[in-house]
Write a protein that binds this DNA or RNA. Structure first.
Lengths: 193, 193
DNA sequence: AATAACACTTGCCATTTGGCAAGAAATCAT
DNA sequence: ATGATTTCTTGCCAAATGGCAAGTGTTATT
C-alpha cells in the first residue's frame, strides 16, 4: 500500500508509531479529481475529509448579490474539508472544486470519528487541523481589513505565489475582495516596479 | 453551587445527564472582569476557556501599520477563547478585553483536556464550540468581501444591534474595515432613511 | 462646578476602486 | 490549423472611502 504522502504528513504533525500510522492510513481511500471536478457542492452535507496529495483546489460561494466569491485556495500537501458542514452535519454553503487535476486520500465522517475515538493521538491531529485552518482563516481576515487592494495583492504574492500560478484572475480577485479589473491593473503597476 | 447559566448553556448544546453536567461545571471557576480588564493579552499563551455569563467583550490586534483592529465581539452567553493560542499553546497575537463589567466561569487548558478525555460527550461540546466559532468567522469574512461599507454597516446593524449598544464607534469601525469617520457618516445617512 | 480627557461629527478635498465596454490574448473544441 | 469561447487588459469616467482638522458633545476627575 502506498499512501506515502499521507503518512508523511500525519507523521510531521504528531509523532506516532509506524503501526498506528498504517492503522490510520488504512481507512483512507485513494481519490482522484479531474480539473473542474467538485469535491463538495453547496447544498450537500460534506462527508469526506481529504488529504490533497497533489493538485490545487479552491472553495467558493456566492455573496448576497449573487457574485461568486472564492473563499479559500488549497495547495497540495494539506487537508481539505469544510469544517462546518463536515463536523456539524449541516448543508454546505460552499463549493470545493479542483482547479487542476488532483489526487489524494479521503476518509468518511463516520470512519474519522471512529479513529478519533479509538486513537487519542489522532484526535489531537484532528483538532490541530481544525485549529490550524481556523487560525489561517483569521490571519486572512486580518490581512483583508485595513489594507489597500494593492497591499492585499502584494501580501498574497509574497505568501502564496502558487495561487497565481494555478488560479484564474477573477478567482484570485474575489478572494482578495476586489474586481478582476482592479487586480489586472494592480498587477500591471506592480510588475513595473 | 450556582453556575446556572453555564449549565444551561452546555445542556442546550448537547443533552447530558444532570450528574455529568455538575461534574463538568465543578471544574469551572467563577471569574469577574471590570470594564477594560483583559481576559487575554497579546504575547501570552492563553490558558483559560471562558463562558461569559454576563457582559460584553471584544478581541483586537494590530495590523501591519500599527492600527488597532477589532477582530471580534463577544456578547454574553457564549464561550470566549482564542482557539489558536489556547489549543496550540502558542503566543497570542490577540487581546481580549472586557467592554463592560463582565462575569463568567473559566476552566484551564489542562482541566478542559482532562474533561475531554474522560467525558466523550463533552469532547463533542468542545468540538462544536470550535466549529461554531470557525463557521461564524467564515460568515463574517464573506460578509466583508464584496460589500460596500454601508452594506457592511447595515448587515451588522440587523444581525448584531447589541454591538452598537455596547461598543465604541472606532472599535466597530475597525471591525467593519472602515474608518471611524466613515462609520459616523454612514450611520448618519442611514438614520435619515 | 470647573477642567480635562475622550468620543463623535462634519466640511473640504485627494485618492482609490469600480463599472462599463472594447479590444487583445490565450485556450479549447472540432 | 481555424474559428469560437473564454480570459485578461485598458481607457474613460463615476462613485465610494479616506485623511486631516476643527468643532461639538459627553464623561470622568478633582
Amino acid at each position: 500500500m502506498d499512501k506515502e504522502p499521507l503518512i508523511n504528513f500525519i507523521q510531521n504533525c504528531l509523532p506516532v508509531s509506524k503501526k498506528t500510522l498504517s492503522d490510520i492510513a488504512e481507512h483512507f481511500e485513494e481519490k482522484t479529481f479531474a480539473k473542474n471536478d467538485y469535491f463538495l457542492r453547496e447544498g450537500q452535507i460534506s462527508n469526506d475529509y481529504l488529504f490533497l496529495a497533489d493538485g490545487f483546489m479552491r472553495a467558493f460561494t456566492f455573496d448576497t448579490n449573487g457574485n461568486e466569491v472564492t473563499t479559500f485556495f488549497y495547495p497540495k500537501n494539506r487537508v481539505v474539508f469544510e469544517a462546518s458542514s463536515f463536523f456539524m452535519r449541516t448543508i454546505s454553503t460552499e463549493n470545493i472544486q479542483a482547479v487542476t487535476d488532483c489526487n489524494g486520500y479521503s476518509i468518511t465522517f463516520e470512519r474519522l470519528n471512529m479513529l478519533f475515538h479509538s486513537i487519542p493521538e489522532f484526535r489531537e491531529f484532528g483538532r490541530a487541523m481544525l485549529v490550524k485552518e481556523f487560525s489561517a482563516y483569521k490571519q486572512r481576515t486580518l490581512a483583508m481589513i485595513n489594507k489597500s487592494a494593492e497591499e492585499r495583492y502584494t501580501s498574497l504574492m509574497i505568501s502564496n505565489k502558487d495561487i497565481f500560478r494555478n488560479a484564474q484572475l477573477k478567482h484570485i480577485a474575489s478572494y482578495l475582495g476586489m474586481t478582476d479589473t482592479s487586480l489586472s491593473r494592480i498587477r500591471k503597476e506592480s510588475s513595473k516596479k
